[in-house]
Amino acid sequence: MTTSPLRVLIHGGGIGGLTLATALAGRGHQVDVAELRAELDALGVGIIQPSNALHVMRELGVLEDCLAAGFEWEVLTICDPAGATLAKIPQPRMGDVPSNNGIPRPALAKVLGAAATAAGARIRFATTISELHEDAAGVEVALSDGSTGCYDLVVGFDGIGSPLRARLHGERFTPEYTGFANWRVTLPRDPEVVGVLMSAGRQNAKALLTPITDELMYLGAVFAEAADFRPDPLRAHEQLAERLDGFGGPIAAALAQVTDPAAVVYSRISQVAVEEPWHVGRLVLAGDAAHASTPHLAQGAAMAVEDALVLAQSLDAHPDLAGALAAWEERRRPRAMWVQALSRAILKQETGGATTPAEDELLKVGIPGAAHVLVRPY
């Protein structure tokens, strides 16, 4: 086992960072989390926790909290644009945890923040790294709140725009805009929506309904958008309706409830892949900082929490830090990059883009097949 307790700084208090904080603090390590936001007010609407992510939540001891705060579901429904059901696809389970759980992002942040704090981690809000310097003794870090500290390990769970990645690699690995964007809005749950309902329409448009509590669901839609496009704050709901013109059934019924432009959440879909090692000395990149993928497999957050738990397990299993980090990356890179590659291939397929022979092979797996791959041990 790696010498314990380690002094660990986690840069970023999102889903992956809080998972790692919980896992490490629960093992007796000294953990600080530097979070840029003033509180854990997670942005966005809801998120899907597939079975492999729920397996991590069980390992942390927060599975029941996640299920209580969300909406457990088992079947993916595929509809045509008019709303007629084309297929109902049961989703696989990893071990004895549910197939999926939809949960509001703020609720998940609350669950993970409470778990990290209870485990002994310290969350420093409105704080980021100002300076760092690594030597044989560790990493000397100056934080923006004026404090300093020496850490054995610094982990960047700081997102697709990762400042730590920029410190390590400059501009060599920067987010690539895919040309598509997500539109999402939270609505009262239709009693008939008991799992994700997905529908594809004209011009490569895709819409879905995802239950996130007994009372709530979100309407999500993906469209091609110019890089400089931003919704009009006064008519974002109307712009969304224009893009969903031609959809019927449950999608149209949900859209009819969208009357407030401020309720519409817009985010561009970008991706990034760090093609060099994810760890340099005592500095580590994880989650979206290392391998942000498009959302086509709903696995971005799942890959982040797997990264976190496997890192904690690797520190358990190896007597030295360098060996633990090498083992962690050897275990994580193939799986995370497979998710990214298949997600990218699906995006190309859905938008009529040219695919490579390797991507054509991946596409034979498809979304339903990927779910079965990803419930195998991580």
Rank of each mutant, 00 (worst) to 15 (best):
A34E: 06
Q313M: 07
V375H: 01
Q299G: 04
H372P: 00
G95T: 13
T2Q: 10
L86Y: 09
M303D: 05
V111W: 01
G14Y: 01
R105I: 02
Q313S: 10
A327I: 10
H291A: 11
R344A: 15
T128L: 00
D65T: 15
L168W: 00
N100A: 10
F180G: 04
G369C: 01
P377N: 14
D307R: 05
I47G: 03
A82K: 13
G17D: 06
S51Q: 11
P175R: 05
I78E: 12
A336L: 03
G353T: 12
A326V: 14
S199K: 05
A34P: 02
G146I: 14
V274P: 04
P295A: 05
D135Q: 10
V196P: 13
D80W: 02
G159H: 06
S199A: 15
V265P: 00
L197D: 06
L342D: 11
Q257V: 09
D41V: 11
L168G: 11
Y378I: 15
L54K: 07
H11R: 15
E361K: 15
G70N: 08
P334I: 06
E72N: 07
I15Q: 04
A226P: 09
R167A: 14
A262F: 03
L197E: 12
G12D: 03
F247H: 04
A326D: 14
T2E: 07
W338H: 13
R167D: 10
L297R: 09
L54R: 08
A304R: 05
G149D: 03
E59G: 08
P98E: 09
V310N: 02
I47P: 01
G248M: 02
A82T: 15
M217I: 11
V339W: 00
M94I: 09
